[in-house]
């Protein structure tokens, strides 16, 4: 049984086409002569990728490992991300560190909406990815990617701080390949507030709606082995 990638909604395709211009060999040649050749886009991406400011936002167990990653032994400052900001208005990166319950999900989406572009999201730990060990629970959201777009998934329960650092490095690689004008226009935004993701309401038994259909669809099951 496999999940067909073609059916996934391709709204989060933020990576731009490869740059045309001087090749790496040309640049090395120029650098040897003391000339540094760059573009505004590269410069911006270099700056953005090396000063990702995370939101100081802990949900559950993984938050403790996130704190540990910022402490002396693992020292996230080596990658330019030690500036944990308590306000979403000043942050670039939302680390969803832990179980997102249905009661908490609207608040997480509101925080995401309040963050200025360009912004990135890391789903840290099994719970944030899919509900993890608590997936059977009636109050547990089965993955934050039902409501907001996620750039990097870090599995583990909880992931070690090294895994978080690795996820951050992956995110930095991702940022370096982006277009300077930011991501493509969001198709999944709410009809009333453009640029924002719709916040679900508390229903009588569940969240309403239970997911953002423009962002997430239940995967299609293809079972060639069994009819």
């Amino acid at each position: 049984m496999t999940m067909s990638d073609a059916t996934r909604p391709a709204i989060n395709a933020q990576t731009s086409a490869p740059l045309s211009g001087p090749t790496d060999a040309d640049r090395d040649e120029l650098r040897r002569h003391g000339i540094l050749l760059t573009s505004i886009q590269e410069l911006a991406n270099w700056g953005r990728s090396n000063s990702v400011w995370p939101l100081q936002f802990g949900l559950a167990c993984c938050a403790i490992e996130m704190i540990a990653a910022s402490m002396a032994r693992f020292d996230i400052a080596r990658f330019g991300s030690e500036v944990f900001r308590p306000s979403p208005r000043q942050a670039d990166l939302l680390i969803v560190s832990g179980t997102v319950t249905k009661k908490m999900a609207p608040q997480v989406i509101r925080l995401w909406n309040q963050m200025p572009e360009p912004k990135y999201c890391i789903a840290m730990g099994a719970c944030a990815i899919s509900g993890g060990p608590f997936k059977q629970g009636y109050n547990v959201l089965k993955g934050i990617d039902r409501f907001i777009p996620v750039d990097v998934y870090i599995p583990g329960c909880p992931p070690r701080p090294e895994a978080l650092l690795n996820g951050l490095i992956e995110l930095q690689k991702n940022i370096r390949g982006r277009h300077i004008a930011g991501p493509a226009p969001v198709e999944a935004d709410s009809p009333t507030a453009p640029g924002e993701y719709p916040v679900p309401a508390f229903g009588e038994r569940d969240l309403e709606p239970t997911s953002n259909p423009k962002l997430w669809q239940p995967p299609v099951i293809v079972r060639p082995d069994k009819p």
């Binding site: 999940m3 009636y138 569940d206 239970t210 239940p218 995967p219």
Partner: peptide
Amino acid sequence: PMRKDYVEPDDYEW
């Protein structure tokens, strides 16, 4: 929800 006959909301995932 803690009653034995509680039916969970149907948010099945693959």
